[in-house]
Design a protein around this nucleic acid. Structure first.
Length: 577
RNA sequence: CGGGGCGUAGCUCAGUCUGGUAGAGCGCACGGUUCGGGACCGUGAGGCCGGUGGUUCAAGUCCACUCGCCCCGACCA
């Protein structure tokens, strides 16, 4: 392709509304343009990168035994009412009406549709398993779209869905999908990790996330360098906890009240009382779907709200307001404690129950109580593991210590179980003629987000550094001196030779100054660059370089094609699926 | 939805406090000089100052309402 015949316009200045690197570079380099909040045009460059990623995904899906189909973007409300999600989904589901006033939604995901397809056709165990996938635009009306393609409202997603006669068969497909995902991200040349994940509101028995590693990632991951354990921090377990140091104060027969004027935080109180944060019992009041709950955890630890949510089995969870805390405990925020706390469910983390004595809030202003003994001065309704694992904690599987990394979630695979097949009566007859529910799996891969993640992971201060497999063009052929006929001719001839050799090349034939072309070349991030100019031509040479190191290699003009092929082979050789 | 901020040329932004001829840089067009890391000189085109209503002799500027967008938080298969 010649630059003059395609549509590539870079911006000289950073866009004012882009904060994260991938967003800024995608806009500046002319890949995307915003249409509305969280909604973008994918310009020709972005379309090529998306197409390349999609091609890799299609190959690996086919290898994993999945067949592609296309489903509607606009879906009738009836199907969502059938699954129960019309009511559950909330405002993130974009609901629309047609001219007859019938209700539809723009699909944020396609479980309902796919289940409807399968339940109408598959009636016998002989037809199972079924494995289908789609690559389509989906829409979720996010509360706050941001970060460009990282968290848009409209996005391109690959979703695969599988249907099985039993859990064993689901497991086979699940393992095949995990393998396919690992191959996809490896083939993209991305550094990534697979971690155990929470199944969230979807439910199901097993789930893994695929994270592209990047400093700017939204998710925290804990992993063990010694073994293969890795998990989203929301899901992460940790081994045995180090005990709190011995209680340094006396332990009276009943807890003693002390004045702690304006000492609210764990740090303030522990310093004020001259004890360790681990000697405090942190008391948090949470508001759930319909009630309140008090949660106790050792002062130096944090509560994992996902674990808490799962333990409570509620849909929503948030810290109670200052006002509610006052009503429930009788004291202001920062002075809550379990002693004498009545009329509210009390949960405790084991770390609290292991304390020989502790200090807690006194449920009134400027007051704490010290010498509180668990099970003597308060008794929780339940003791549950609720703490948030963190870097340095022992690995739950081996003797290593967990380290924290940041990642961008680009894939998420789930064992769904029978949630949808039950709600939507997706059944089959087994070998004994018994009617049974199909067991399902679903496997999402954020195609547009992966493009953004690749940039978050691969850039420098000049622009994008595309991994070869995702680059819009693998090679940029730059013509300098567009006013010199002999140079133009030489470059055009080289372009034809490269095209004939099957090389994925963009020919920058614009009559621009060299500086403009070099800057665009760096900004867009073509992996391999060829510069053809008068100077080199005089000695029969062109200049070959890689985006990632910029090192210039003069190459005789008649050896250019094999030299480029050599470089491309070298780059491809580094990527082993 | 809570807090903060912004809507003026294709893009990035001044001008709004203190009402009185609509501005700059980049980009674009034309001419000239330049030509291996975002050149220079000259000329020119380009605006319903987000929208509606109000105050005023006069509104980009003041007031009210409204729409859109960005940031932080809450939220997130």
């Amino acid at each position: 392709m010649r630059w003059s015949q395609t549509f590539i316009y870079t911006l000289r200045q950073d866009p004012s509304d882009a904060e994260v690197i991938s967003h800024r570079l995608l806009v500046r380099a002319g890949f995307i343009a915003k249409v509305a909040a969280g909604i973008y045009n994918y310009l020709p460059l972005a379309t090529r990168s998306l197409a390349k990623l999609s091609a890799i995904v299609r190959e690996e899906m086919a290898a994993a035994g999945s067949a592609e189909l296309v489903m509607p973007a606009v879906q009738p409300a009836e199907l969502w009412q059938d699954s129960g999600r019309w009511a559950e989904y909330g405002p993130e589901l974009l609901r629309i009406k047609d001219r007859h006033d019938r209700e539809f939604c723009f699909g944020p995901t396609h479980e309902e549709i796919i289940t409807d397809i399968v339940r109408g056709t598959v009636t016998s165990y002989r037809q199972l398993p079924v494995n289908l996938f789609q690559i389509q635009t989906k829409f979720r009306d996010e509360i706050r779209p941001r970060f460009g393609l990282m968290r848009g409202r409209e996005f391109v997603m690959k979703d695969a869905y599988t249907f099985h006669a039993d859990d064993g068969d689901l497991d086979v497909a699940y393992r095949a999908m995990e393998r396919a995902y690992r191959r996809v991200f490896s083939r993209c040349g991305l550094r990534y990790t697979q971690v155990e994940a929470d199944t969230g509101n979807i439910g199901g028995s097993e789930s893994h996330e695929f994270m592209v590693l990047a400093e700017t990632g939204e998710d925290a991951i804990l992993s063990c360098p010694e073994c293969h354990y890795g998990a989203n921090v929301e899901k992460a377990e940790a081994g045995a906890l180090e005990a709190a140091p011995p209680w340094p104060l006396d332990t009276p027969d009943t807890p003693r009240e002390v004045d702690t004027p304006d000492q609210r935080t764990i740090e303030e109180v522990s310093e004020f009382l001259g004890i360790s944060p681990a000697h405090l019992v942190k008391t948090l009041i949470f508001e759930t779907d319909e009630s309140f709950v008090a949660v106790l955890i050792r002062g130096d630890l944090e509560v994992n709200e996902i674990k808490l949510k799962n333990a409570l089995g509620c849909l929503h969870l948030q810290l109670a307001s200052e006002q509610k805390i006052l009503e429930i405990t009788g004291g202001p925020q920062g002075f809550s404690g379990p002693v004498g706390l009545a009329g509210i469910r009390l949960l405790a983390d084991p770390s609290v129950m292991a304390l020989e004595a502790a200090a807690t809030g006194g449920n009134k202003d400027h007051t704490h109580v010290v010498g509180v003994v668990p099970n003597r001065d308060f008794t929780p309704d339940e003791v549950i593991e609720l703490r948030l694992a963190r870097a340095g904690d022992p690995c739950p599987r081996c003797a290593g210590a967990l380290v924290e990394k940041r990642g961008i979630e680009v894939g998420h695979v789930f064992k769904l179980g029978t949630k949808y097949s039950k709600a939507m009566r997706c059944t089959f007859l087994d070998a004994d003629g018994e009617e049974r529910l199909m067991t399902m799996g679903c496997y999402g891969l954020g195609v547009s987000r992966t493009i953004a993640a690749a940039i978050e992971q691969n850039h420098d201060d000049k622009g994008i550094i595309w991994p070869l497999p995702l680059a819009p063009y693998e090679v940029d052929l730059v013509l300098l001196n567009s006013d010199k006929e002999e140079v133009v001719e030489a470059a055009a001839k080289l372009y034809e030779e490269l095209v004939d050799a099957g090389i994925d090349v963009l020919f920058d034939d614009r009559p621009e100054r060299p500086g403009v072309k070099f800057n665009d070349m760096d900004l867009i991030g073509f992996p391999v660059r060829i510069v053809v100019g008068k100077r080199g031509l005089e000695s029969g040479e062109v200049e070959l370089s890689l985006r990632r190191d910029g090192e210039r290699r003069s190459t005789p003009i008649d050896q250019l094609v094999p030299a480029v092929q050599g470089l491309l082979d070298e780059l491809k050789g580094e990527i082993a699926p």
